[in-house]
Each structure stands twice: as structure tokens, then as C-alpha cells.
């Protein structure tokens, strides 16, 4: 197989490639944040006139809360009642599975095409 000679990349091209990568990666983290879509929506479930008992805390727990700087139930209320919402739709789960599996399948197939080329050039055609 003929040896593949890659084109020479200009300095500007190299800089542009780096910028593209940086923009994409920063975007992947910050776009969900900016859109307010980032998960971890841990919301307090309000309890009227909280007492340690109504928040489900036994005396030992109360003693530890006090040591941590929470003198009464009201001060610890938000932290104690905050809960994740784990309800999910099966459709979104299915979408996630398809996206992940699809990603790996696509990647391995493209890799294999490129890999065969590498092996053919390195070891010669069979």
C-alpha cells in the first residue's frame, strides 16, 4: 500500500484547531449551566414550624447538629429536607442508552476503518 503523506498544516490552521477544541469543551460544561439545565436539583421540601422531631432527628443527631453549628431545627431545615428528584421517564432513559451505545458503536466503527489502514501500511497488504 502506498505510504500516506499527510499535508503540512499551517501555523494558523494549528491555532484554529486548538481554538475549536477549547470552545467545544468549555461549551460542553458551561452551556448546561447557563441554560439552567444542570441537574443536581436538590430542593428543600418545606416543613411548617420545624422541630427536630418533625424533621426525623433523634437526640444523638441533634447533638451532632449542635456541634456543627446548627443550634435549632429551623437553621438546619433546608439542609435536612433537601432531596433529589429521582423520578424519570423511561423515554429519557431509552434516549440516554441509545446515545451512549450509539456513540461507542460509531466510534469503534470509524476507528476500525482507520486501524485497518494503519495495519495495512505498517505490515503491508495481506
Amino acid at each position: 500500500m502506498a505510504r500516506y503523506i499527510p499535508p503540512v498544516q499551517s501555523k494558523l490552521g494549528q491555532v484554529i484547531d486548538v481554538i475549536v477544541l477549547v470552545v467545544l469543551s468549555v461549551g460542553a460544561l458551561f452551556v448546561p449551566l447557563w441554560l439552567g439545565l444542570a441537574g443536581s436539583a436538590k430542593l428543600p421540601v418545606p416543613v411548617e414550624n420545624p422541630t427536630w422531631e418533625s424533621l426525623g432527628q433523634n437526640p444523638v443527631m441533634v447533638a451532632q447538629w449542635n456541634k456543627l453549628g446548627f443550634p435549632d431545627a429551623a437553621s438546619a431545615h433546608d439542609m435536612i429536607t433537601a432531596r433529589y428528584d429521582y423520578s424519570f421517564s423511561w423515554i429519557s432513559l431509552a434516549v440516554m442508552v441509545i446515545v451512549i451505545v450509539g456513540y461507542f458503536v460509531m466510534m469503534i466503527r470509524f476507528s476500525d476503518i482507520e486501524y485497518r489502514e494503519v495495519i495495512a501500511e505498517k505490515f503491508g497488504e495481506k
Partner: peptide
């Protein structure tokens, strides 16, 4: 996926 599904898809 439970709690951070959006980041997973974004990633």
C-alpha cells in the same frame, strides 16, 4: 443519569 442526566447528554 439519576440527577445529572443533562450533563451526561451534553458530555
Amino acid at each position: 443519569f439519576l440527577g445529572y442526566g443533562t450533563q451526561l447528554i451534553a458530555m
